[in-house]
Design a protein around this nucleic acid. Structure first.
Lengths: 120, 120
DNA sequence: CAGATCGGTATACCGGAGTATACCTGATAA
DNA sequence: TTATCAGGTATACTCCGGTATACCGATCTG
């Protein structure tokens, strides 16, 4: 049946797309870094502070990967206490709806869990 | 400044929500399994076939975790060639907008990459 | 002078997510 | 008889994402 073949192909394609997304920003930290930056944080230390538990090394590495993937830009100033600014690219902003959905769901999920503890 | 405190607190809360989401369905396979099921796949073998590369062991483990988190239900029939059906819970369906966003972005991202190869 | 700040790098290490492979049951088909 | 199917489990292993810790240069602060 051609219809079934199409359906299967579409399923595979969607899976591929999902894989791509997960590959680009799916790690323990990338989305969280990204979200922090959406929130207005642009300095290394600001981002670090906003993400409890992240190490400098990890943050540094993840920022580099985000830069390579053209999701952020880095501008360093040769100032005295060194200074760098990270900014989302306009392309990265296409990710915002997704992140918002994730935040929304996480918020509702937490409420569900809390409520669930009462009854169950 | 109170405004800044509020902003910081809100930032932390959003980060927490994002963490929760990632914790619940963020792994190499969970979202992909979930998406496959959205697509109509309900049998173990169907899901397995739709996700190239997954092993039985991994699929089995991930399905169990999804069940524990009340995102899917499992119904086993004591038939001859054993049979089981997995279904999304209505609660799980609240994840669909998010998954759709991820598929959408992945699709566009791939197109961008392909185009980018021409010019850059 | 010691100590702090900013934005990192260097080195060494570990845990656990995911993999590979073989095997199980119980019925049915060739 | 042997093989096949679905839906798994058992055991052993590997790899690498992330951690821990220390350190750097340049400056300014007390």
């Amino acid at each position: 049946m051609k219809a079934i073949e199409n359906r299967t192909a579409r399923c595979k394609q969607n899976d591929l797309a999902l894989q791509d997304t997960i590959y680009a920003i799916g790690s323990k930290w990338k989305m969280r870094i990204f979200r922090s930056m959406c929130f207005g944080n642009i300095r290394f230390a600001e981002i670090e502070k906003s993400l409890t538990g992240i190490t400098k090394r990890t943050l540094s590495k993840e920022l580099k990967e985000l830069e390579v993937n053209q999701l952020i830009t880095r501008k360093a100033y040769p100032d005295q206490p060194s200074k760098a600014e990270y900014k989302l690219t306009s392309y990265a902003r296409t990710l915002i709806p997704m992140i918002n959905e994730m935040v929304r769901w996480g918020t509702e999920h937490r409420q569900m869990i809390i409520k669930g503890q009462k009854t169950a």
